[in-house]
Write a protein that binds this DNA or RNA. Structure first.
Lengths: 134, 134
DNA sequence: ACTAAAAAGACATTATAAGTCTTTTTTATG
DNA sequence: CATAAAAAAGACTTATAATGTCTTTTTAGT
């Protein structure tokens, strides 16, 4: 359980690759896809999501492609993962206060809150810079 | 992401309810299902899994039903969750050493190992006794 | 104008989750 | 021993989400 989807795995591979390139070099999606062994059309969707929230910058047309939206030391694994997988929610009940009817009486709830917190903390402490270094 | 399935949620509800009952009281599956608001046929499957690994003991025939397989202070949330959801694996690559080809070169791998460890630790520290108390 | 690229949207396929139904086995009891 | 009550087992269905493709549109450089 608690498994990252392939989309998430691909997303990480793709953006880590981008982070490992020289800073201002514009990369073709097709090149990234080939390098990290991901279906190009699928990776395109992923990078569109990245682009919308500024994790990457995209340039269209001839000579276009992608570069990181920020320096790799200022992008965390948490951001990358949540960008494509949505928020870390070990259980539905942690999404919003008072969501589940069992609510106050439920002793399990705080456990999920704890899990969520820990996982977020770990992923948030890892930057693309760290992941891109060899 | 990292979300418990409904099956997992049902599993917890069911066995926590059982843990909240007087120790030697045999409970009907139908009663448990009604109490925790889960489709009885679905809960039956879940309790069959519990039974196989000894988390609960089942009695068939007239007067049959379920009781906990051990005292509630010796059953952890981790066991319950893994019983129905399988092992906690934030990513495929943590399942077995040398599984993924990127392996040694992959800087992300240790992060998943860390996540797995932390989540398991949290769930393992919570007993049914704690969850069943009001 | 033409070409190269990403963006957008619709679509197709596959896998997993969620749930049901029927039959079989076990066991207590009249 | 016959019956009824219960769980076990297996086959099946349906719904939802993951995974991926294809086509068209927009944008930008030459």
């Amino acid at each position: 359980m608690m498994e990252l989807t392939r989309k998430g795995e691909y997303a990480i591979r793709g953006i880590v690759f981008l982070a490992s390139r020289p800073p201002e070099q514009v990369c073709l999606l097709s090149d990234i896809a080939a390098a990290v062994d991901v279906p190009p059309t699928f990776l395109a969707k992923i990078f569109q999501q990245f682009s919308k929230i500024g994790l990457v910058k995209s340039y269209r047309g001839t000579g276009g492609g992608f570069v990181l939206g920020r320096t790799p030391d200022r992008i965390t694994l948490l951001e990358v993962v949540e960008a494509v997988e949505g928020p870390i929610t070990p259980n539905r009940c942690v999404i919003k206060e008072g969501e589940c009817p069992r609510d106050t009486s439920c002793n399990v709830h705080p456990v999920w809150v704890d899990v969520q917190q820990q996982v977020r903390d770990i992923l948030n402490s890892v930057t693309l810079q760290k992941l891109a270094q060899r």
